[in-house]
Design a protein around this nucleic acid. Structure first.
Lengths: 201, 201
DNA sequence: ACTTTTGTCAACCAAACGGTTAAACAATAC
DNA sequence: GTATTGTTTAACCGTTTGGTTGACAAAAGT
Protein backbone atom coordinates (compact mmCIF):
# COMPACT_ATOMS: atom_id res chain seq x y z
CA UNK A 1 0.00 0.00 0.00
CA UNK A 2 2.60 2.59 1.03
CA UNK A 3 6.40 2.73 1.45
CA UNK A 4 8.36 1.77 4.54
CA UNK A 5 7.40 4.83 6.58
CA UNK A 6 6.02 3.18 9.71
CA UNK A 7 3.67 5.92 10.79
CA UNK A 8 2.09 5.98 7.35
CA UNK A 9 1.81 2.21 7.19
CA UNK A 10 0.00 2.27 10.51
CA UNK A 11 -2.47 4.93 9.39
CA UNK A 12 -3.14 3.09 6.11
CA UNK A 13 -3.82 -0.16 7.95
CA UNK A 14 -5.91 1.64 10.56
CA UNK A 15 -8.02 3.28 7.87
CA UNK A 16 -8.58 -0.12 6.33
CA UNK A 17 -9.62 -1.82 9.57
CA UNK A 18 -11.51 1.00 11.29
CA UNK A 19 -13.51 1.98 8.22
CA UNK A 20 -14.65 -1.57 7.53
CA UNK A 21 -15.20 -2.75 11.12
CA UNK A 22 -15.86 0.43 13.08
CA UNK A 23 -14.33 1.52 16.38
CA UNK A 24 -15.86 -1.34 18.40
CA UNK A 25 -15.13 -4.08 15.88
CA UNK A 26 -11.55 -3.02 15.15
CA UNK A 27 -8.67 -4.82 16.86
CA UNK A 28 -5.27 -3.26 17.45
CA UNK A 29 -3.58 -6.57 16.65
CA UNK A 30 -5.30 -6.76 13.27
CA UNK A 31 -4.13 -3.25 12.42
CA UNK A 32 -0.59 -4.19 13.42
CA UNK A 33 -0.75 -7.35 11.30
CA UNK A 34 -2.07 -5.48 8.27
CA UNK A 35 0.69 -2.88 8.67
CA UNK A 36 3.23 -5.68 9.22
CA UNK A 37 4.68 -4.08 12.33
CA UNK A 38 4.77 -4.81 16.04
CA UNK A 39 1.68 -3.89 17.99
CA UNK A 40 3.72 -1.64 20.29
CA UNK A 41 4.35 0.65 17.34
CA UNK A 42 0.67 1.59 17.30
CA UNK A 43 0.99 3.02 20.79
CA UNK A 44 4.41 4.48 20.11
CA UNK A 45 3.01 6.62 17.30
CA UNK A 46 -0.61 7.10 18.33
CA UNK A 47 -0.68 6.48 22.12
CA UNK A 48 -4.11 4.81 22.23
CA UNK A 49 -6.82 3.15 20.17
CA UNK A 50 -8.99 6.20 20.66
CA UNK A 51 -6.30 8.57 19.33
CA UNK A 52 -5.65 6.31 16.34
CA UNK A 53 -9.35 6.15 15.65
CA UNK A 54 -9.60 9.92 15.74
CA UNK A 55 -6.81 10.19 13.17
CA UNK A 56 -8.72 7.79 10.91
CA UNK A 57 -11.97 9.63 11.43
CA UNK A 58 -10.34 12.94 10.55
CA UNK A 59 -8.92 11.56 7.31
CA UNK A 60 -12.41 10.34 6.41
CA UNK A 61 -13.88 13.79 7.03
CA UNK A 62 -11.03 15.47 5.18
CA UNK A 63 -11.81 13.35 2.12
CA UNK A 64 -15.53 14.10 2.13
CA UNK A 65 -15.82 17.66 3.42
CA UNK A 66 -13.72 19.77 1.00
CA UNK A 67 -15.58 18.60 -2.11
CA UNK A 68 -18.87 19.15 -0.33
CA UNK A 69 -17.91 22.69 0.57
CA UNK A 70 -16.35 23.40 -2.83
CA UNK A 71 -19.59 22.53 -4.58
CA UNK A 72 -21.79 24.35 -2.12
CA UNK A 73 -19.74 27.54 -2.11
CA UNK A 74 -18.94 27.79 -5.81
CA UNK A 75 -20.84 30.68 -7.37
CA UNK A 76 -22.92 29.10 -10.13
CA UNK A 77 -26.60 28.58 -10.99
CA UNK A 78 -28.52 26.24 -8.69
CA UNK A 79 -29.21 23.65 -11.37
CA UNK A 80 -25.51 23.47 -12.26
CA UNK A 81 -24.72 23.15 -8.60
CA UNK A 82 -27.07 20.22 -8.25
CA UNK A 83 -25.60 18.52 -11.30
CA UNK A 84 -22.08 19.07 -10.01
CA UNK A 85 -22.97 17.76 -6.59
CA UNK A 86 -24.59 14.49 -7.61
CA UNK A 87 -21.98 13.78 -10.29
CA UNK A 88 -19.01 14.86 -8.22
CA UNK A 89 -20.08 13.27 -5.00
CA UNK A 90 -21.18 9.93 -6.37
CA UNK A 91 -17.82 9.76 -8.20
CA UNK A 92 -15.94 10.60 -5.01
CA UNK A 93 -17.78 8.07 -2.88
CA UNK A 94 -17.31 5.36 -5.50
CA UNK A 95 -13.59 5.66 -4.79
CA UNK A 96 -14.12 5.51 -1.02
CA UNK A 97 -17.02 3.16 -0.61
CA UNK A 98 -16.57 2.52 3.10
CA UNK A 99 -16.47 6.14 4.22
CA UNK A 100 -20.17 7.15 4.29
CA UNK A 101 -21.22 4.12 6.33
CA UNK A 102 -18.21 4.59 8.59
CA UNK A 103 -18.97 8.24 9.28
CA UNK A 104 -22.67 7.60 9.82
CA UNK A 105 -22.01 4.64 12.09
CA UNK A 106 -19.51 6.45 14.28
CA UNK A 107 -21.51 9.66 14.39
CA UNK A 108 -24.54 7.70 15.60
CA UNK A 109 -22.35 6.00 18.21
CA UNK A 110 -21.08 9.34 19.46
CA UNK A 111 -23.04 12.28 17.99
CA UNK A 112 -21.01 14.92 19.83
CA UNK A 113 -17.72 14.15 18.04
CA UNK A 114 -18.09 16.61 15.21
CA UNK A 115 -20.92 18.88 16.21
CA UNK A 116 -18.62 21.89 16.36
CA UNK A 117 -16.48 20.86 13.41
CA UNK A 118 -19.47 20.49 11.15
CA UNK A 119 -21.12 23.71 12.15
CA UNK A 120 -18.00 25.80 11.63
CA UNK A 121 -17.26 23.85 8.43
CA UNK A 122 -20.65 24.26 6.77
CA UNK A 123 -22.49 26.77 8.89
CA UNK A 124 -22.64 29.82 6.63
CA UNK A 125 -22.22 27.76 3.44
CA UNK A 126 -25.69 26.50 4.22
CA UNK A 127 -27.07 29.91 5.14
CA UNK A 128 -26.16 31.46 1.79
CA UNK A 129 -27.51 28.48 -0.12
CA UNK A 130 -30.71 28.68 1.90
CA UNK A 131 -31.32 32.31 0.94
CA UNK A 132 -30.48 31.56 -2.71
CA UNK A 133 -33.14 28.85 -2.86
CA UNK A 134 -35.70 31.01 -1.06
CA UNK A 135 -35.07 33.84 -3.50
CA UNK A 136 -35.55 31.54 -6.47
CA UNK A 137 -38.85 30.38 -5.01
CA UNK A 138 -39.99 33.99 -4.45
CA UNK A 139 -38.92 34.99 -7.98
CA UNK A 140 -40.96 32.10 -9.34
CA UNK A 141 -37.91 30.41 -10.86
CA UNK A 142 -38.58 27.08 -9.13
CA UNK A 143 -41.49 25.32 -7.50
CA UNK A 144 -42.07 26.21 -3.81
CA UNK A 145 -39.82 24.08 -1.60
CA UNK A 146 -38.14 24.41 1.79
CA UNK A 147 -34.37 24.65 1.24
CA UNK A 148 -33.87 22.08 4.02
CA UNK A 149 -35.89 19.45 2.18
CA UNK A 150 -34.20 20.11 -1.14
CA UNK A 151 -30.77 19.71 0.45
CA UNK A 152 -31.78 16.56 2.30
CA UNK A 153 -33.18 15.11 -0.92
CA UNK A 154 -30.01 15.79 -2.87
CA UNK A 155 -27.76 14.29 -0.22
CA UNK A 156 -30.07 11.35 0.50
CA UNK A 157 -30.39 10.22 -3.11
CA UNK A 158 -26.65 10.59 -3.67
CA UNK A 159 -25.34 8.85 -0.56
CA UNK A 160 -28.03 6.37 0.54
CA UNK A 161 -27.39 3.85 -2.28
CA UNK A 162 -23.85 3.38 -0.91
CA UNK A 163 -24.92 3.11 2.71
CA UNK A 164 -27.77 0.67 2.04
CA UNK A 165 -26.04 -1.23 -0.73
CA UNK A 166 -26.58 -4.74 0.72
CA UNK A 167 -30.31 -4.18 1.23
CA UNK A 168 -30.91 -2.49 -2.11
CA UNK A 169 -28.93 -5.14 -3.93
CA UNK A 170 -31.24 -7.79 -2.46
CA UNK A 171 -34.49 -5.88 -2.91
CA UNK A 172 -33.68 -4.99 -6.50
CA UNK A 173 -32.08 -8.38 -7.19
CA UNK A 174 -28.90 -7.00 -8.68
CA UNK A 175 -25.44 -8.53 -8.69
CA UNK A 176 -22.31 -6.50 -8.02
CA UNK A 177 -21.79 -5.51 -11.64
CA UNK A 178 -25.39 -4.45 -12.21
CA UNK A 179 -25.44 -2.47 -8.99
CA UNK A 180 -22.24 -0.62 -9.92
CA UNK A 181 -23.87 0.29 -13.23
CA UNK A 182 -26.91 1.61 -11.40
CA UNK A 183 -24.68 3.83 -9.25
CA UNK A 184 -22.95 5.10 -12.38
CA UNK A 185 -26.31 6.01 -13.90
CA UNK A 186 -27.24 7.91 -10.78
CA UNK A 187 -24.50 10.50 -11.36
CA UNK A 188 -26.84 12.12 -13.89
CA UNK A 189 -30.18 10.56 -12.95
CA UNK A 190 -30.37 12.10 -9.47
CA UNK A 191 -29.80 15.62 -10.80
CA UNK A 192 -32.33 15.09 -13.61
CA UNK A 193 -34.86 13.74 -11.14
CA UNK A 194 -34.45 16.68 -8.76
CA UNK A 195 -34.44 19.38 -11.40
CA UNK A 196 -37.46 17.80 -13.03
CA UNK A 197 -39.28 18.09 -9.73
CA UNK A 198 -38.49 21.70 -8.87
CA UNK A 199 -38.34 23.42 -12.25
CA UNK A 200 -41.47 25.12 -13.58
CA UNK A 201 -42.94 23.72 -16.79
CA UNK B 1 -40.45 -2.50 30.36
CA UNK B 2 -42.19 -5.88 30.40
CA UNK B 3 -43.60 -8.23 33.05
CA UNK B 4 -41.67 -10.87 34.95
CA UNK B 5 -41.28 -13.26 32.05
CA UNK B 6 -37.52 -13.65 31.98
CA UNK B 7 -37.11 -14.58 28.33
CA UNK B 8 -39.10 -11.51 27.29
CA UNK B 9 -37.20 -9.24 29.62
CA UNK B 10 -33.96 -10.49 28.09
CA UNK B 11 -35.12 -9.87 24.54
CA UNK B 12 -36.38 -6.40 25.42
CA UNK B 13 -33.07 -5.49 27.02
CA UNK B 14 -31.13 -7.07 24.15
CA UNK B 15 -33.11 -5.07 21.60
CA UNK B 16 -32.33 -1.95 23.55
CA UNK B 17 -28.59 -2.60 23.78
CA UNK B 18 -27.92 -4.24 20.41
CA UNK B 19 -29.90 -1.70 18.41
CA UNK B 20 -28.16 1.26 19.99
CA UNK B 21 -24.62 -0.15 20.22
CA UNK B 22 -24.46 -2.80 17.49
CA UNK B 23 -23.16 -6.35 17.75
CA UNK B 24 -19.57 -5.35 18.48
CA UNK B 25 -20.38 -2.58 20.93
CA UNK B 26 -22.97 -4.54 22.91
CA UNK B 27 -21.97 -6.22 26.19
CA UNK B 28 -23.73 -9.25 27.62
CA UNK B 29 -23.35 -7.83 31.12
CA UNK B 30 -25.11 -4.61 30.12
CA UNK B 31 -28.00 -6.57 28.67
CA UNK B 32 -28.26 -8.61 31.86
CA UNK B 33 -28.18 -5.44 33.96
CA UNK B 34 -30.88 -3.76 31.86
CA UNK B 35 -33.04 -6.91 32.15
CA UNK B 36 -32.27 -7.07 35.89
CA UNK B 37 -31.33 -10.76 35.74
CA UNK B 38 -28.18 -12.79 36.13
CA UNK B 39 -25.87 -12.94 33.13
CA UNK B 40 -26.14 -16.74 33.07
CA UNK B 41 -29.79 -16.40 32.11
CA UNK B 42 -28.77 -14.92 28.77
CA UNK B 43 -26.98 -18.15 27.88
CA UNK B 44 -29.65 -20.32 29.45
CA UNK B 45 -32.28 -18.88 27.08
CA UNK B 46 -30.22 -17.90 24.04
CA UNK B 47 -27.02 -20.01 24.24
CA UNK B 48 -24.67 -17.36 22.86
CA UNK B 49 -24.24 -13.68 22.05
CA UNK B 50 -24.52 -14.51 18.36
CA UNK B 51 -27.86 -16.32 18.82
CA UNK B 52 -29.25 -13.52 20.96
CA UNK B 53 -28.13 -11.00 18.37
CA UNK B 54 -29.87 -12.97 15.62
CA UNK B 55 -33.10 -12.91 17.63
CA UNK B 56 -32.81 -9.13 17.93
CA UNK B 57 -32.00 -8.75 14.25
CA UNK B 58 -35.03 -10.80 13.28
CA UNK B 59 -37.35 -8.68 15.41
CA UNK B 60 -35.94 -5.60 13.68
CA UNK B 61 -36.64 -7.10 10.27
CA UNK B 62 -40.08 -8.26 11.35
CA UNK B 63 -40.95 -4.70 12.32
CA UNK B 64 -39.79 -3.17 9.04
CA UNK B 65 -40.54 -5.80 6.42
CA UNK B 66 -44.32 -6.43 6.69
CA UNK B 67 -45.29 -2.78 6.23
CA UNK B 68 -42.87 -2.52 3.33
CA UNK B 69 -44.45 -5.54 1.64
CA UNK B 70 -47.99 -4.49 2.48
CA UNK B 71 -47.52 -1.17 0.74
CA UNK B 72 -45.70 -2.61 -2.23
CA UNK B 73 -48.20 -5.42 -2.81
CA UNK B 74 -51.41 -3.50 -2.23
CA UNK B 75 -53.29 -3.02 -5.48
CA UNK B 76 -53.65 0.72 -5.86
CA UNK B 77 -52.49 3.50 -8.24
CA UNK B 78 -48.76 4.22 -8.21
CA UNK B 79 -49.14 7.76 -6.88
CA UNK B 80 -51.25 6.52 -3.95
CA UNK B 81 -48.67 3.85 -3.33
CA UNK B 82 -45.90 6.41 -3.17
CA UNK B 83 -47.93 8.60 -0.79
CA UNK B 84 -48.73 5.62 1.42
CA UNK B 85 -45.12 4.51 1.47
CA UNK B 86 -43.53 7.79 2.48
CA UNK B 87 -46.22 8.60 5.00
CA UNK B 88 -46.48 5.08 6.44
CA UNK B 89 -42.80 4.35 6.54
CA UNK B 90 -41.65 7.63 8.01
CA UNK B 91 -44.31 7.19 10.71
CA UNK B 92 -43.14 3.65 11.41
CA UNK B 93 -39.48 4.56 11.62
CA UNK B 94 -40.24 7.50 13.89
CA UNK B 95 -41.43 4.94 16.43
CA UNK B 96 -38.30 2.79 15.98
CA UNK B 97 -35.58 5.33 15.38
CA UNK B 98 -32.67 2.97 15.96
CA UNK B 99 -33.73 0.23 13.57
CA UNK B 100 -32.66 1.57 10.16
CA UNK B 101 -29.14 2.41 11.30
CA UNK B 102 -28.94 -0.91 13.14
CA UNK B 103 -29.97 -2.95 10.10
CA UNK B 104 -27.70 -1.03 7.75
CA UNK B 105 -24.75 -1.25 10.12
CA UNK B 106 -25.07 -4.98 10.68
CA UNK B 107 -25.80 -5.76 7.06
CA UNK B 108 -22.63 -3.94 6.07
CA UNK B 109 -20.71 -5.85 8.72
CA UNK B 110 -22.01 -9.16 7.39
CA UNK B 111 -23.83 -8.76 4.04
CA UNK B 112 -24.65 -12.47 3.70
CA UNK B 113 -26.95 -12.58 6.74
CA UNK B 114 -30.18 -11.84 4.96
CA UNK B 115 -29.46 -12.24 1.30
CA UNK B 116 -31.85 -15.18 0.96
CA UNK B 117 -34.43 -13.81 3.38
CA UNK B 118 -34.71 -10.54 1.51
CA UNK B 119 -34.95 -12.08 -1.92
CA UNK B 120 -37.72 -14.49 -0.94
CA UNK B 121 -39.40 -11.72 1.04
CA UNK B 122 -39.46 -9.10 -1.70
CA UNK B 123 -38.43 -10.90 -4.84
CA UNK B 124 -41.66 -10.96 -6.85
CA UNK B 125 -43.14 -7.95 -5.03
CA UNK B 126 -40.45 -5.98 -6.80
CA UNK B 127 -40.95 -7.71 -10.16
CA UNK B 128 -44.62 -6.78 -10.38
CA UNK B 129 -43.96 -3.22 -9.31
CA UNK B 130 -41.21 -2.99 -11.89
CA UNK B 131 -43.56 -3.98 -14.73
CA UNK B 132 -46.23 -1.60 -13.45
CA UNK B 133 -43.83 1.33 -13.62
CA UNK B 134 -42.54 0.31 -17.04
CA UNK B 135 -46.09 0.09 -18.35
CA UNK B 136 -46.91 3.54 -17.04
CA UNK B 137 -43.85 4.91 -18.81
CA UNK B 138 -44.84 3.18 -22.07
CA UNK B 139 -48.41 4.43 -21.78
CA UNK B 140 -47.10 7.95 -21.33
CA UNK B 141 -48.62 8.29 -17.87
CA UNK B 142 -45.32 9.27 -16.24
CA UNK B 143 -41.98 10.62 -17.30
CA UNK B 144 -39.43 8.02 -18.49
CA UNK B 145 -37.62 6.53 -15.51
CA UNK B 146 -35.98 3.23 -14.63
CA UNK B 147 -38.06 1.50 -11.92
CA UNK B 148 -34.88 0.79 -9.96
CA UNK B 149 -34.05 4.46 -9.66
CA UNK B 150 -37.57 5.44 -8.69
CA UNK B 151 -37.60 2.83 -5.92
CA UNK B 152 -34.16 3.82 -4.67
CA UNK B 153 -35.23 7.47 -4.63
CA UNK B 154 -38.37 6.75 -2.61
CA UNK B 155 -36.56 4.63 -0.06
CA UNK B 156 -33.54 6.94 0.14
CA UNK B 157 -35.51 10.10 0.80
CA UNK B 158 -37.67 8.34 3.39
CA UNK B 159 -35.00 6.55 5.39
CA UNK B 160 -31.78 8.55 4.97
CA UNK B 161 -32.85 11.43 7.24
CA UNK B 162 -33.05 8.94 10.13
CA UNK B 163 -29.75 7.26 9.37
CA UNK B 164 -27.82 10.49 8.87
CA UNK B 165 -29.61 12.46 11.56
CA UNK B 166 -26.49 13.66 13.43
CA UNK B 167 -24.84 14.96 10.25
CA UNK B 168 -27.96 16.58 8.83
CA UNK B 169 -28.78 18.20 12.15
CA UNK B 170 -25.35 19.85 12.10
CA UNK B 171 -25.32 20.79 8.43
CA UNK B 172 -28.82 22.28 8.61
CA UNK B 173 -28.22 23.73 12.07
CA UNK B 174 -31.40 22.33 13.60
CA UNK B 175 -32.04 21.38 17.21
CA UNK B 176 -33.89 18.20 18.17
CA UNK B 177 -37.33 19.79 18.04
CA UNK B 178 -36.81 21.48 14.68
CA UNK B 179 -35.40 18.28 13.18
CA UNK B 180 -38.40 16.25 14.38
CA UNK B 181 -40.65 18.79 12.70
CA UNK B 182 -38.69 18.44 9.48
CA UNK B 183 -39.17 14.66 9.58
CA UNK B 184 -42.87 15.16 10.16
CA UNK B 185 -43.09 17.41 7.11
CA UNK B 186 -41.35 14.80 5.00
CA UNK B 187 -44.27 12.38 5.35
CA UNK B 188 -46.03 14.40 2.66
CA UNK B 189 -43.13 16.36 1.16
CA UNK B 190 -41.24 13.32 -0.16
CA UNK B 191 -44.28 12.00 -2.00
CA UNK B 192 -45.06 15.45 -3.42
CA UNK B 193 -41.47 15.87 -4.53
CA UNK B 194 -41.38 12.50 -6.28
CA UNK B 195 -44.75 12.78 -7.95
CA UNK B 196 -43.90 16.29 -9.09
CA UNK B 197 -40.83 14.88 -10.77
CA UNK B 198 -42.39 11.94 -12.61
CA UNK B 199 -45.86 13.20 -13.51
CA UNK B 200 -46.44 14.80 -16.90
CA UNK B 201 -47.52 18.43 -16.91
C1' DA C 1 -43.93 -38.56 48.85
C1' DC C 2 -40.23 -38.43 46.06
C1' DT C 3 -38.08 -37.89 41.78
C1' DT C 4 -37.25 -35.16 37.65
C1' DT C 5 -37.27 -31.06 35.26
C1' DT C 6 -36.87 -26.21 34.91
C1' DG C 7 -35.21 -21.84 36.42
C1' DT C 8 -31.89 -18.84 39.00
C1' DC C 9 -27.65 -17.35 40.92
C1' DA C 10 -22.74 -16.50 42.56
C1' DA C 11 -18.43 -17.90 41.54
C1' DC C 12 -15.42 -19.12 38.30
C1' DC C 13 -12.63 -19.70 33.74
C1' DA C 14 -9.86 -19.27 29.59
C1' DA C 15 -9.17 -16.25 25.94
C1' DA C 16 -8.79 -11.84 24.05
C1' DC C 17 -8.23 -7.23 24.73
C1' DG C 18 -5.68 -2.55 25.04
C1' DG C 19 -1.76 -1.11 26.85
C1' DT C 20 3.20 -1.21 29.22
C1' DT C 21 7.96 -2.37 29.90
C1' DA C 22 12.66 -3.12 29.36
C1' DA C 23 15.98 -4.28 26.57
C1' DA C 24 17.83 -4.63 21.79
C1' DC C 25 18.84 -2.24 17.72
C1' DA C 26 19.85 1.50 14.44
C1' DA C 27 20.91 6.14 13.23
C1' DT C 28 22.91 10.35 14.07
C1' DA C 29 25.79 13.55 16.83
C1' DC C 30 29.80 14.53 19.32
C1' DG D 1 34.69 5.33 18.69
C1' DT D 2 31.45 6.34 21.96
C1' DA D 3 27.42 8.74 23.73
C1' DT D 4 22.74 10.03 22.49
C1' DT D 5 18.64 9.73 20.48
C1' DG D 6 14.92 7.67 18.15
C1' DT D 7 12.89 3.18 16.66
C1' DT D 8 11.55 -1.67 17.11
C1' DT D 9 10.68 -5.93 19.38
C1' DA D 10 9.21 -9.88 22.56
C1' DA D 11 7.49 -10.63 26.75
C1' DC D 12 4.44 -9.26 29.96
C1' DC D 13 0.21 -7.20 32.68
C1' DG D 14 -4.31 -6.12 34.45
C1' DT D 15 -8.96 -6.01 32.89
C1' DT D 16 -12.80 -7.23 30.40
C1' DT D 17 -15.03 -10.42 27.64
C1' DG D 18 -18.31 -14.34 26.43
C1' DG D 19 -19.23 -18.41 28.37
C1' DT D 20 -19.40 -22.41 32.09
C1' DT D 21 -20.14 -24.75 36.40
C1' DG D 22 -22.30 -26.47 40.36
C1' DA D 23 -25.19 -25.58 44.03
C1' DC D 24 -29.82 -24.80 45.01
C1' DA D 25 -34.81 -23.94 44.85
C1' DA D 26 -39.30 -24.00 42.81
C1' DA D 27 -42.47 -26.53 39.97
C1' DA D 28 -44.09 -30.47 37.55
C1' DG D 29 -44.63 -35.32 36.86
C1' DT D 30 -45.27 -39.83 38.79
Amino acid sequence: MSDNNTEEKILDAAINVFQSKGMDGARMQEIADKAKINKSMLHYYYRSKQKLFEAVFKTAISIMAPKLREIIEKDEPLFDKIRNFTNGYISLISKHAYIPTFIIQELNRNPEILQDTFIKEFGNSFSTMKTTINEMVENGEITPIKPEHLIINVIAMSIFPFVAKPILKSVLQKDEKEYKLLLEERKTHVADFIINSIRLK
